[in-house]
Amino acid sequence: MFLPGIVRSSSLRQQTRAFAAISPGSSPLNLTSSSPYQVFDRKAKFLQKDRAATRDGGARSKTVDYIRTEVAERMLERFLDIKRKFNTVLDLGSGPGHFSKLLETERTKKSIMIDSSVEVERIHADEENLLTIVDRNSQEAIVSCLSLHWVNDLPGVLVQIKEALQPDGLFLGAMFGGETLFELRTSLQLAEVEREGGISPHVSPMTENGDISNLLSRAGFNLLTVDVDEIQVAYPSMWELLEDLSDMGEANAIMGRRNFIHRDTLSAASAIYKELHGNEDGSIPATFQVIYMIGWKPSPSQPQPLKRGSGKVNLKEVL
């Protein structure tokens, strides 16, 4: 979501094309891709995740697990509401298995974890090409805990998930929603406008909660349940938030991002963040909005709507 970077010398700055539409450090647009959506630089994201997982021998990554652990627990509550036993669950974008480690053997016999970061490999694969590693109609349940917000083609991935499920298979997911990090987004925008006279992408565009149910039904899921939850974390200042985001492997990976922010802009953003959003005790809040979604692959065994005209009670009388 955000990459703190700084220019160390003026000679370096001259070599860097700071205002180019596609910044020099990012990998080029993949023009041969069939996907119509190219928002995120997946290559940069893989690198960021790998680095974050190995920083200080993994210790830094462990300290910043708090969001994922919390969301995994909340997701498990929803999982336990489903009265069914699963032989296997496919954990998409598992990371080190925040969700899978909470599963109980009584309810779930086996969990397969898939992630795109090499360092935490279970099955090392890209979430965007799910069907290349998983057969169609093969999975009983697929879960995804905070892994879909870096996917370029979200509608396509949801379709692939549906295809990979058996009929009446379950998809349970949690992903970051549009309000996530709005404080950071606004502070950086204000700072950039005031200092430099323009804005550039720092916080990812994220899916609005209203869009999720549309996307799920478009992908062909049945019996949808979507709900939204917010987690607010207090940080001493913007700098700790940025450091933690980077340790989470959640630094900025938007196509066409600038690879550094000027110190003046960064300091200005920190000052604005504190005055505009700061808590009374001097700390600053960061909002993480999480959208939980449940969808089922259609199957004849599922409860179906009754035929038109089969109702016996006139709703007019009830109302």
Partner: peptide
């Protein structure tokens, strides 16, 4: 920093360079 932040806060609906 606080003085700068307050200045932005006073004008944040119409911030210019």
């Amino acid at each position: 920093a606080s003085a700068y932040g307050k200045c932005i806060l006073a004008t944040y609906t119409d911030v210019r360079k």
